[in-house]
Amino acid sequence: MESEVQSVGEPPATEDVSKALVDIEQSWRGKGTDWFLQKLASWANQNGMEFGLTLHTPTGIVSGTLISHVTYFKAFAEEFAGPWLGEDEGPLRDAISTYGDPLPGDDEPGASINFIHLKDAQFYAPGQNPMPENGILWRGKISAVCSFHLGRFAQA
């Protein structure tokens, strides 16, 4: 009895497998990601738009001003490099600032924006004053946002 070996063809290309895995992940996780919030973050990234936004997350409410990823990383670099005065400050700031450079595919239609950035962000909890008093830079996963509304909270 002779055994037959059937050819199943060439294995799929790595790019094809990677794309298939991304498609599967987006079909599962993407259902929990607000496409409109992704669009607002994209507008901020592409056009430098800034406006008040309040996000409701499982850990609480975050309210601040939506900014682009470029603005976020420049401000983060300034804050982070601040304590390193002297020769090390410039290269450190420059290295962190490059994280704000556009990523490949960010400017393509339908690109998936996964993070949102706020400046002057404050956290709100029932019966408590907003924290911190002066606000901070904040970066969060869009998929972790339950709901949002236009505008930011103001202390009465």
Rank of each mutant, 00 (worst) to 15 (best):
S3T: 13
P109N: 07
F123S: 09
K39L: 07
R93M: 00
P102A: 14
L55Q: 08
I136P: 02
I136W: 02
G64Y: 02
W43E: 08
A13Q: 10
S63P: 02
G30T: 11
W138C: 11
F76A: 13
Q122K: 15
L118E: 01
V5W: 06
L37S: 04
A111L: 08
V22L: 13
L66E: 03
S63R: 05
V62L: 12
Q46S: 12
D101M: 05
F115M: 14
I113E: 03
V17E: 01
G151C: 10
K39N: 07
G86P: 01
R29P: 04
P130W: 04
S143K: 15
G9D: 09
Q128C: 05
P12C: 06
G140F: 09
I136F: 10
Q155M: 14
G90M: 00
G135P: 05
C146Q: 14
I24K: 13
Y124K: 06
A95P: 01
S68Y: 03
V62N: 04
G110L: 12
I24G: 07
G48D: 05
G30F: 11
E2A: 15
S63W: 09
V8Y: 07
N134D: 15
A95I: 00
E50N: 08
E78C: 03
S63G: 07
W43Q: 10
M49L: 15
E87Y: 00
A111G: 07
